[in-house]
Amino acid sequence: MHIRQKIRRVLTAVTAVLSLATGVVAVSASSATAAGPNLLPLTISNTSHRSDALYLYVLGTDLNTGKLGYVNSSGVFSAWPPGANPPGLAPDVAIKGPGNGSSTTVKIPKMLSGRVYLSFGQKLKFSLAPGGLVQPAPWAGSDPNRDILFDWSEFTYDNAGLFINSSQVDMFSVPHTVGLTNGAGENKEAGRLKPNGRENIFNALQKQPGFSKLVQKRRDGTKLRVLAPGKGLETGLLKPNYLDGYLTNAWNTYKSRPLTVVPFEADPGKKFTGRTGGDGVLRFTDASGKTVASFGKPSTRDVFNCDGRLGAPNDQVVGPIARTLCAALHRSTLGYLHTQPTYDGRRFYQQRVTDHYSKAVHDQMVDGKAYGFAFDDVGHFESLVHDGNPRSARITLTAF
């Protein structure tokens, strides 16, 4: 499994829904020490054209100790105090962000994995329970952050260097890019929207039958966010059987023809062949003919959450096949293109029933790359940058 895929999967797994966030655990590509500084400068630039006050939070897991905590602007990590039951408010650890047209630089200590939250107008409300930090979950009606305009980026800075990505796995809200400069002076960037891209995403989902309820607004008319389909399912905003007809057709397709999965781009000779049996189970065999993985027809929820019957263990067979299937189902290529994954993004989202949320987000990215779902890194379509020798990092809030 590609290192980016492993890290992204872990980051996704700790997103708080109505439960406790357990922290982010990085998976290093190498035990060799990366050349980056012990404290990596991260510059947040505000070109949003908004006059609201901006607040920043750097939260995550100390990978040396496993403790959950927060970082101040100087890069000093502090563990959270013990939580309570019921959860009590966490300490206010907001860092004052830059006004429009300005920048602020904070430090990220090596061996930290977590999130940078950015909120406009109001500070976010975090709480602590015995299991850890309860992070914002605005898809839940009772969440105190429901009417706050905010977003986050995810990162891991460890001995493999810096991995940083913008994320739309749970929602799309504040347009921003992520980037870094390495020791050779090379700049890398991801997550840049096309002009008027935010408005186009909101409009596309508002007009899409079955998806319009995913758009959340404040009473004053402010467009806050568009929820990802998985979050819409949790709150009854999307039909729980939305994909069911497509899933039946896809599984039935492989009763009469084989499906070839080649999950490792660097190892095209490693192939698995899938066929659907009379019991509706899609079974995969390896080159020797041995059955190595089996998948019952997933539900709409399984697909949008990349879990359940599409759960992907961190191994070298079942997990990579599951990831490939989940990506193909989001992109509505399974059942139509019989070798997966497909690397031609022009073939994605072409069916009437598809992940219109991810389609809208990808359509509005300058480079076509985003994290519209957990396994959007299959085929390298994710909005992530990585370098083993970072010298500085940046998050830029773009105009909206």
Rank of each mutant, 00 (worst) to 15 (best):
S51T: 06
D92H: 09
S30L: 04
A312I: 11
F264K: 12
Q316T: 11
S153Y: 00
A287C: 07
S51D: 10
H356V: 03
E189N: 07
G23N: 08
E154T: 07
G245Y: 00
M1H: 11
Y242V: 09
K369G: 02
T339H: 01
A228Q: 08
E186T: 15
Q122E: 13
A374S: 15
S119V: 07
P82S: 13
W251T: 01
G289R: 04
P86A: 10
L237A: 12
S142G: 15
N38P: 08
Y254I: 08
D344R: 06
V317T: 15
Q208W: 06
D376L: 08
E265P: 15
L68W: 00
S358N: 03
G221V: 01
N249R: 02
A29I: 00
S73G: 08
T260S: 07
E154K: 04
D151L: 12
N85I: 09
T333W: 00
A16V: 02
P240F: 02
P263Y: 00
F264D: 13
S142Q: 15
S256I: 14
T43N: 03
K290R: 13
V14I: 11
S212H: 09
S294E: 13
T22M: 11
G210E: 05
I201M: 07
A328W: 03
S30M: 05
A293R: 10
S19G: 13
N249P: 02
M1V: 14
L233F: 10
F120L: 14
H362T: 12
T339N: 10
I7H: 02
V318R: 11
L325S: 11
A266W: 04
F126P: 08
M111L: 14
T33M: 12
P37V: 08
P138T: 10
T333Q: 06
E234Y: 02
V261W: 00
R309D: 15
K110E: 05
Q5S: 14
L180G: 01
K107Y: 12
G368I: 06
S173L: 02
V116S: 08
A293P: 14
V226Q: 03
V226S: 10
Y254Q: 04
S256P: 02
G296E: 09
G210K: 08
R198M: 09
R275G: 09
R115A: 14
I164L: 14
T61I: 11
A90E: 05
V71L: 07
P320F: 04
A266Y: 09
D363R: 11
A228R: 06
D52R: 00
V215N: 12
E265L: 15
F295N: 05
L233I: 05
S212F: 04
V317H: 08
A327D: 10
G197L: 05
H356F: 10
L384Y: 00
P138R: 06
L128P: 14
F77S: 12
A21I: 02
F172D: 07
L162D: 05
D376F: 01
G230I: 00
R219E: 15
N305G: 07
A190F: 01
